[in-house]
Amino acid sequence: AAYVSVMDQYGYQIGKVIGRGSYGTVYEAYFTKQKVTVAIKIISKKKASEDYLNKFLPREIQVMKSLRHKHLIAFYQTIETTSRHYIIMELAPSGDVLEWIQKSGPCSEALAGKWFSQLTLGIAYLHSKGAVHRDLKLENLLLDKRENVKISDFGFAKMVMPQSQPAPSPSYHMMSCFAHLSQTYCGSFAYACPEILLGLPYNPFLSDTWSMGVILYTLVVAHLPFDDTNLKKLLRETQREVAFPANQPVCDECKDLVRRLLRQASKRLNILEVLKTGWVLKFVAEKPTAEIKALEAV
């Protein structure tokens, strides 16, 4: 294939396919100049939509370039040719959390605590930079060789205006934000908050924390809290308090955190509140002083 020679010129030896997205394929590759293995997302300009190439892709690259955190997949380089875009990133060699759960079932409290607190630190960093992810789900939580979480796939991420700047008008901003999102939630209804499902203007920071609630529930129960096969049923379910199966031992602190994430936006925890909950702090490797400070400044 033509792309192999392009990659050769830059010193990348393409290996096996490790993922497929709607417009791109992700390969494992060996970077000969630095003797490291990386992940390369190759996007064909012929296959991708105009909208994706002109709007989402530049945004994904802009967001990734401006972020650096141990729980986010690191961005190394982007290369553009006449027919393709190549995004070179950190490789997470141990698969994703969805695969782990499909294979091993519900996580122990300790493992759920480890992964969820790492997700919380990564999103706290993201939100403190004025960015939102908007597509958090188990398959976007990759695992490094020590099985630490690396948040991936910034295809729908964007920098939201920091609150300090005067916006054109709140409703205008929220609507433009929404117009974008209604197309965005194509593949992940099960993780989408009720306000998105209802087509209402919403706060994208709180849509991320709702998705975190869905993730935490699934870590400890091993299935999604809401059935997304039927949209009407899904809407009904997301507006009721979430139920836990009686036969599975989930601690009350953890259940309580899930319930405070899976509730209407006006009562839902934001990322700073999540970071300060006792259950999360119990599992954080070191006290998240920097993340808390950065969020309080915003």
Rank of each mutant, 00 (worst) to 15 (best):
P249W: 01
Y172N: 03
Y125C: 01
M7V: 07
L200W: 03
E28W: 04
L219R: 13
K287F: 05
V274H: 02
D144F: 08
E273M: 12
Y202W: 03
R260F: 01
G105W: 10
P162M: 06
V214E: 09
Q9K: 15
Y202F: 15
L216M: 11
Q163E: 13
N203P: 05
S171W: 07
F244V: 02
L235S: 06
S108P: 01
I87V: 15
K41H: 08
A265L: 00
V221Q: 04
A74W: 06
Y30N: 07
E28A: 12
N54C: 03
I73K: 00
L53V: 08
T218S: 14
D144G: 09
F244Q: 06
Q13D: 14
N140G: 09
F178M: 08
G95V: 08
K55A: 00
P249C: 08
V149N: 02
G11H: 07
L272Q: 12
K33V: 06
C193E: 10
K267E: 15
L67H: 09
P170L: 13
V63H: 00
A179E: 13
T32M: 12
T289R: 08
I18H: 05
S44Q: 13
L53E: 08
I151H: 03
L141G: 03
K129R: 15
L136N: 09
D252Y: 06
S207Y: 00
Q9S: 15
I14W: 06
T25M: 09
A2S: 14
T78W: 09
D96F: 02
A74N: 13
A246D: 12
Q118S: 04
A29Y: 06
Q118D: 04
L72G: 06
V220G: 02
P166W: 01
V26Q: 12
T82Q: 13
K70T: 14
E80C: 06
E195Y: 02
